[in-house]
């Protein structure tokens, strides 16, 4: 392989790895938005807090896998508490009110972590060390861990939504809320569940990507913004499209930063967002709103 091809492949793998994290965060936007209509501005903070919880548990002496899983559990439950305490009591509020509420949650989480952990960034150690070479293409093992974790989370979510009674009730509530109520599905409980799912996928993203991206109190801003862009590629309505959007964004960022300008990396997401909002408000992968509602 020529050096050019190797560069390209390495950049693509790195992009897929970063994109996996965006995709998981994006899935969180979709689960909450599809059931409640809320855009959760604290979505990136779920990832950030999970990483810090894992780092703290590891420092307390727990083995890494246990620390990671516990962190995901803590954030999933924490997301349920957030929904009960900060979202549910405002049932029936305007979009602006919910933006204020989730923004408030986001700022509270950031400020708490800043006060507790300080401004410096920390990171979990890579799950396994070394570096892998596939015919000259060098790959960080952590990138494979991230891809594997994303795959497991996505398949787990898919199995839950497609195969379980509660998962089907959740989809029913997203598709046709009135009819869902008429068959006995409680919108309040599905709203809580949507936050639990969003907390779970966000936490997985935060924990597995921490060794690569370094976690600080403000990282949720970037993860959240990029996750939102990825989710909007699917019109905020489709889980597979959110993951595909995340992967695409990650790869475009990685390639753009190398071939065009490294200063461009974070601007690409906004450029993509503007193009999507102007050209296809229903999302690139998503069906248009009208088609989805028929």
């Amino acid at each position: 392989m020529t050096a050019g091809v190797i560069d390209f492949l390495q950049l693509t793998v790195a992009g897929l790895s970063a994109g996996s994290a965006y995709g998981l965060v994006a899935v969180g936007f979709v689960t909450i938005h599809s059931v409640t209509g809320i855009i959760n501005l604290a979505q990136g903070e779920f990832a950030m807090v999970a990483a810090f919880v894992a780092i703290a548990l590891l420092a307390a002496g727990l083995p890494l896998p246990i620390a990671g899983l516990l962190a995901v559990l803590v954030v999933a439950l924490g997301a349920a508490v957030v929904e009960r305490v900060a979202i549910a009591p405002a049932a029936g509020s305007s979009v602006v009110a919910y933006i204020m509420l989730t923004l408030g949650v986001s700022i509270t989480l950031k400020a708490s972590v800043l006060l507790i952990e300080g401004p410096q960034s920390k990171a979990l150690p890579a799950f396994t060390g070394g570096i892998l070479s596939f015919g000259g293409v060098l790959v960080r093992p952590q990138d494979l861990w991230i891809l594997a974790a994303t795959l497991v989370a996505a398949l787990g979510l898919y199995a839950f939504l497609e195969r379980t009674v509660t998962g089907k009730a959740f989809r029913a509530c997203a598709e046709q809320p009135t009819a869902a109520r008429l068959v006995g599905v409680s919108p309040a409980r599905m709203s809580t569940l949507s936050f639990v799912l969003a907390g779970t996928v966000g936490a997985v993203a935060g924990v597995v990507s921490s060794p690569v991206i370094q976690t600080d109190w403000n990282i949720g801003l970037f993860l959240g913004l990029k996750g939102f862009v990825a989710a909007s590629l699917g019109g905020l309505a489709s889980i597979p499209a959110a993951i595909a959007g995340g992967l695409l964004l990650g790869v475009v960022e990685s390639l753009g930063a190398f071939y065009v300008s490294s200063g461009l990396r974070d601007a690409i997401a906004f450029f993509v967002l503007i193009v999507v909002l102007v050209a296809r408000p229903g999302g690139v992968f998503g069906r248009t709103q009208a088609a989805a509602r028929v």
Binding site: L182, R293, V294
Partner: peptide, 13 residues
Amino acid sequence: AHVPENRLVFPGM
């Protein structure tokens, strides 16, 4: 059981 106006089936399911 209430069978609502306009049916309101779950279209994607």
